[in-house]
Nucleic acid binder design. Structure first.
Lengths: 165, 165
DNA sequence: CGCCTTTGCTTCGAAGTTGAAGCACAATGC
DNA sequence: GCATTGTGCTTCAACTTCGAAGCAAAGGCG
């Protein structure tokens, strides 16, 4: 039974959350750009590949990017830079298999420590161990809850977004 | 004395935090687009103006957008849509004073309840009152800590970002 | 098998975002 | 007072992102 409004405390939590996330992302982006010439998206893609070594485009897009075409574009850049290669999949002729190169791996290994440092400095340092535990717990629940959200098709269909601006 | 790496728990908190924020933003954006034809940025700008009634471009940009040119662009759209007006400031001839129109106010009033609903449904509902209190507390501290961060000029200056991709 | 739908990816055009450059006014210093 | 520096905003080109449309292979299904 969802209520109507939000208490000031709830609103405050939302605002603080939104701004903190925005600030953290901005700082991280600055760092990655300065340190490795990568955008956050590119870094996330490479980091994933550094673990998995090889993924299809769809697997790779999942959770990082909200459109397939965006991934195609980024993959093109990363391939051009020699950080990944793209090839056909044997299981499925439609699929493109993305594989990280040695250069890509080397870049991730070079950048990762600094990235972790930034996160530590900005997010972890001002918090107690207990806070971090809480944060992880709360965010995991919120994340899972949102992942499970119906993709806005079960909701009462509204008029077609008149694009007022 | 900042340490070197991050514990798995700390990393987990970071990942959950980042993904939750991304998901929330995406959902909110979808909703605002569908409901009022506004982007998140546009909504934030209007929401601010709904409180302040009138702000200079610089004041308006603060905290919402990371580049001035971006604000100029958005203000142009909002003005075209009749939601704001731009005029010269009396105190400072350089400054542009942005004022929300009646239409703008009406739009915010129409959209805001739904926006709050979405936040409630996605962020607040899966949490206990205690969680929300904690979240607000933690995020406020992290936010303030990041706001106070030196803008990357005190840090040991690195080479000029070779733009590897 | 033939047909139809689904899935994986790319292409393309329309927006949005950014940083650098530029313009006009303001503030400071001599 | 005048030159210099700083501030507020805009313009412009480059880049990124998204959604719609398109293409080819895969998976039902009669």
């Amino acid at each position: 039974m969802t209520g109507q409004g939000l208490e000031p405390q709830q609103l405050g939590a939302y605002f603080a959350f939104a701004e903190a996330a925005s600030l953290l992302q901005h700082h991280v982006e600055q760092h990655l750009r300065a340190e490795g010439g990568l955008s956050y998206v590119q870094f996330q893609l490479l980091a994933r590949l550094a673990e998995a070594r090889s993924l299809t485009m769809t697997q790779l897009a999942d959770g990082v990017v909200y459109s397939r075409s965006g991934l195609t574009y980024q993959a093109g850049l990363l391939e051009q830079a020699g950080l990944i290669t793209r090839g056909p999949s044997v299981d499925d002729e439609r699929a493109t298999l993305v594989t990280i190169t040695e250069e890509g791996l080397a870049l991730v290994r070079r950048i990762l420590p600094g990235h972790v440092q930034v996160v530590r400095r900005l997010l972890v340092d001002p918090l107690s161990n207990d806070d971090v535990r809480h944060l992880g717990d709360i965010m995991s629940r919120v994340r899972d809850h949102m992942r499970a959200q119906p993709p806005r098709s079960a909701a009462p269909r509204r008029r077609r977004a008149p694009r007022s601006v």
